[in-house]
């Protein structure tokens, strides 16, 4: 297997009906990596994900996963390789167990109405791993936002994906749940060698968890590299149009970003 070019995106252009949002993007990520995608609103982060999951009709260029062109894959085949966790779990009146079992959909045959013993076993395994097994008979609507996200991750794992996409999975959560979700993702990445591609707004969390970061600006890659290379005050000021102070955290040795208001800025 080609470990280095596990996900290979080449000259990708995509967008909605008549306008390209993603403008000629090329990058590749290696198997087992934890890559963060950052950028201001409208820079094309979510559009990039929608291109990968096949939700856009206007696509040029190519996306290879493990040397397979995913743009030509059947939807079910693709869902066996790529799973996505979005900002919210869109809770409906469905039990936690049934929600996680939906992750087995890509493996179901047309007339197969019932879940197999294997489906159930996998669902339980991943519910246990994400710590939601105790809720299995509760309705999704009865859980908190953080718990729902953990269930959504269990559903994504039930797809047994090779690549896990996360679109701001913690943006609606308090810090305790943010850390719970991100620690879990890190564990999955390290212990199960799951390749992770995550859109994240919080730059400090990006620095803490990602080993590679891609910074998007207006549909193009502005810069990519290690957190130290990408998260400089100059890059952030240029792309986000915000004043920040960046420094290496003395304890964690990782970049730390401090936001500065206009008023404070004038005073210093």
């Amino acid at each position: 297997m080609d470990n280095k070019n596990f996900l290979k995106i080449e000259k990708l252009k995509s967008g909605y009906t008549d306008k390209f949002i993603i403008d000629n993007i090329s990058f590749d990520i290696s198997k087992g990596s934890f890559t963060g995608i950052i950028g201001p609103n409208g820079s094309g982060k979510t559009t990039l994900f929608k291109t990968i999951t096949g939700e856009l009709s206007l696509v040029k260029g190519s996306i290879y996963l493990n040397n397979n062109n995913i743009l030509k894959m059947q939807p079910k085949q693709k869902a066996q390789k790529i799973a996505i966790v979005t900002q919210t779990a869109d809770a409906v009146d469905i039990s936690v167990e049934d929600y996680v079992l939906m992750g087995r959909y890509p493996y179901k045959k047309k007339f197969q109405l019932f879940d197999t013993a294997e489906d159930l076993e996998l669902a339980h395994k991943f519910m246990k791993l994400t710590g939601v097994l105790r809720f299995k008979d509760k309705l999704m609507t009865e859980l908190s936002g953080g718990e729902q996200q953990l269930v959504a991750i269990a559903k994504a794992l039930a797809q047994e994906p090779e690549l896990l996409l996360l679109d701001e999975p913690t943006s609606h959560l308090d810090i305790s749940h943010q850390m719970q979700v991100l620690n879990l993702i890190q564990k999955l990445n390290e212990e199960y060698n799951l390749t992770v591609l995550m859109i994240i707004h919080d730059l400090n969390l990006a620095a803490e968890f990602c080993d590679f970061i891609i910074m998007l600006d207006q549909g193009k890659i502005y810069v990519k590299g290690t957190p130290e290379e990408v998260l400089t005050y100059k890059n952030i000021e240029e792309v986000f149009n915000a004043i920040v102070i960046t420094q290496e955290n003395r304890i964690t040795k990782k970049p730390s970003i401090l936001l500065v208001s206009d008023k404070t800025y004038k005073q210093i």
């Binding site: 096949g54 085949q77 869109d90 939906m102 959909y105 890509p106």
Partner: peptide
């Protein structure tokens, strides 16, 4: 799968 919305159903391969 569509109970979770069109987009999530697509993610599951529908």
């Amino acid at each position: 799968a569509l109970r979770l919305g069109e987009s999530k159903a697509k993610h599951l391969g529908v």
